[in-house]
């Protein structure tokens, strides 16, 4: 099973993406999509040796909802800051400690911090214990770190690791 189908989730995702790309759900496209979804993971295997497991699909749904909500909110916040007085911003580099083990969860966390209010991941520490985040306007560093840890890291840990 493991050798025939190295990444079941990736297969499903690629099939879905193919159907969306071709913008139809004709049987032929479905078969072609499944074929691609089966074949491509073999080529991607060297980049992605560990299997990705979703332990709590419901938490994943909730996380996606929070993420979308925060992305919309972030757009308004950033727009307001650009239109406001840029001299009043208090940018800062903040080291956020993380304790995620899987590469996949870590990259999602880094991606998430980029899309959400006023932060941008800049560097992953060589020991993989922290990421360097550039924030656009911070009042309280502690609160900032706490938000990232509880709002994004905790659910990711539950979904992909526990």
């Amino acid at each position: 099973m493991q050798r025939l189908l190295p990444h079941p989730l990736l297969t499903v995702l690629l099939t879905l993406i193919w159907l969306l790309l071709s913008n139809s759900i004709a049987l032929g496209q479905l078969v072609l999509g499944m074929l691609l979804g089966w074949a491509i993971p073999f080529f991607a295997l060297p980049f992605w040796p560990d299997k990705v497991k979703v332990h709590k699909p419901l938490t994943l749904l909730k996380f996606t909802y929070i993420l979308l909500h925060d992305i919309v909110e972030a757009n308004f916040i950033v727009a307001a800051r650009i239109l406001g007085n840029p001299a009043k911003l208090r940018p800062a580099f903040i080291v956020v400690p993380i304790d995620l083990d899987s590469d996949f969860a870590m990259s999602i966390l880094a991606n998430t911090t980029c899309l959400t209010p006023g932060s941008l991941s800049a560097l992953l520490a060589p020991d993989r214990k922290s990421i360097l985040v550039h924030a656009m306007d911070v009042e309280d560093e502690e609160a900032f770190i706490r938000t990232i840890k509880t709002r994004y890291e905790q659910p990711l840990k539950e979904i992909f690791e526990e």
Binding site: I71, V72, A74, N75, F76, V78, A79, I82, P86, A87, L89, P91, C114, L115, P117, G118, L120, A122, H134, M136
Partner: peptide
């Protein structure tokens, strides 16, 4: 006003 804050505009202001 600086390179790092400028990165925020195009990444977030434009997704919506």
């Amino acid at each position: 006003r600086d390179f790092y804050t400028r990165l925020h505009g195009p990444t977030k202001g434009t997704t919506l």
